[in-house]
Simulated assay, not measured.
Amino acid sequence: MQGVELTSVTKQYAHGVTALDDVTIAFRTGTFTAVMGPSGSGKSTLLQCAAGLDRPTSGQVTVDGRDLSGLSDKQLTLLRRDRIGFVFQAFNLLPSLTATQNVGLPLRLAGRRPDPELVRQSLAAVGLAGRAGHRPAEMSGGQQQRVAIARALVTRPAVLFADEPTGALDANTSREVLQLLRALVDRHAQTIVMVTHDPVAASYADRVVFLADGRVYGELADPTAELVATRMLQLEAASC
């Protein structure tokens, strides 16, 4: 079963800039995929189109069995709210709220009263059951990112999109967050698509998809950091 599918997706911007050029790719349910490529390769645009944050110029995007092209802006907003989770490099936590309150915030913004048990389970899933009453300033960077992940998981999303989720963390903390993402896939069959520039981060994924000049330039299954780094050097040399 395909969690996310892009079929012949092209995205063009003003002045003739083509960010994605006839991209066809699928991200299967319950898998962890890293997306990599040189600067300007189309990684962020791919994530934005796949997540319904931006509409492609042409082609089809399907998320959780729904064709996004036929959805209105309001329907897209509801789909993102209910079925898609987001984690970014910046934690984007509200400093005045506790971990519990930050995790429950998406539900409140949707006009729903957060289920305390659901919020507790989300924090427990990221190993922070004992930090529920702490505010961001009382937590480490890694713990704050874990809260951000719990917040993304509280709606039980079909897919979790992560854009450089360890970019602001040190090596040890990054490893903890990546191990958590890996466990979410292995234990809970969560679908994760992660954009990263880091070969070590990519090595936690089931496969790595490489982009260059808005096109898919192959993929690597069961990646190691060394193999990913070598492939990236080849791509960067070819794009020079």
Rank of each mutant, 00 (worst) to 15 (best):
T62P: 00
R187N: 15
F88M: 09
A26K: 06
T98A: 08
V35Q: 01
A238H: 10
N102M: 08
F32H: 03
T10G: 12
S96T: 12
A26N: 13
T77H: 01
A51H: 11
D198G: 10
D67H: 12
V185P: 02
D64A: 15
V103D: 15
A183G: 11
V209C: 11
L235P: 13
P223K: 15
F86R: 01
L78S: 15
V195F: 02
G85R: 00
T230E: 10
T62I: 15
L78P: 00
R175D: 03
Q12P: 00
K43E: 08
H188M: 09
L46N: 01
I149S: 08
N172H: 13
Q121A: 09
H15E: 12
A132W: 14
Y217R: 08
V185T: 10
L109E: 15
G133E: 11
Q89C: 13
R175K: 14
S174Q: 04
H15G: 06
R156T: 14
S239M: 08
T33D: 02
G167R: 03
R187W: 00
A137D: 14
R81C: 07
L93A: 09
V63Q: 11
V154H: 07
V103E: 14
F27M: 02
G167K: 03
R231C: 10
G142F: 08
T33E: 02
D198S: 14
N102L: 06
A132E: 05
K43G: 03
R146N: 06
V185M: 08
V147L: 04
D73Y: 02
A150G: 12
Q179E: 15
Q121H: 11
R81L: 07
S96G: 01
F88R: 06
V63G: 03
A137E: 13
L184A: 05
A171F: 09
R80L: 11
S203I: 12
Q48I: 00
A221M: 13
L105G: 03
Q121F: 00
P56W: 04
G111L: 05
T173F: 09
D54W: 00
R66G: 00
G141R: 12
A137L: 08
P165I: 07
A150Q: 06
I25W: 06
D67K: 11
D82R: 15
G167Q: 05
T155P: 00
R135Y: 08
P116M: 13
E164N: 10
Y204G: 13
D73W: 01
E138L: 03
R182Q: 12
A137R: 11
E138V: 03
A150M: 05
L235T: 11
Q144L: 08
T100V: 09
T18R: 04
L233E: 07
G52V: 07
R113N: 09
R113G: 01
D67V: 14
P116K: 07
D54K: 04
R135C: 09
P157G: 05
V209G: 13
Q143W: 08
A189E: 13
P223R: 14
E117F: 00
L68T: 12
V126E: 13
L68W: 03
G142D: 02
T33K: 00
V228R: 03
L68F: 05
V147F: 07
L233M: 11
L153H: 02
V216F: 02
A51F: 14
E176H: 14
G70K: 03
M194Q: 07
Q2A: 14
V9P: 14
Y217L: 10
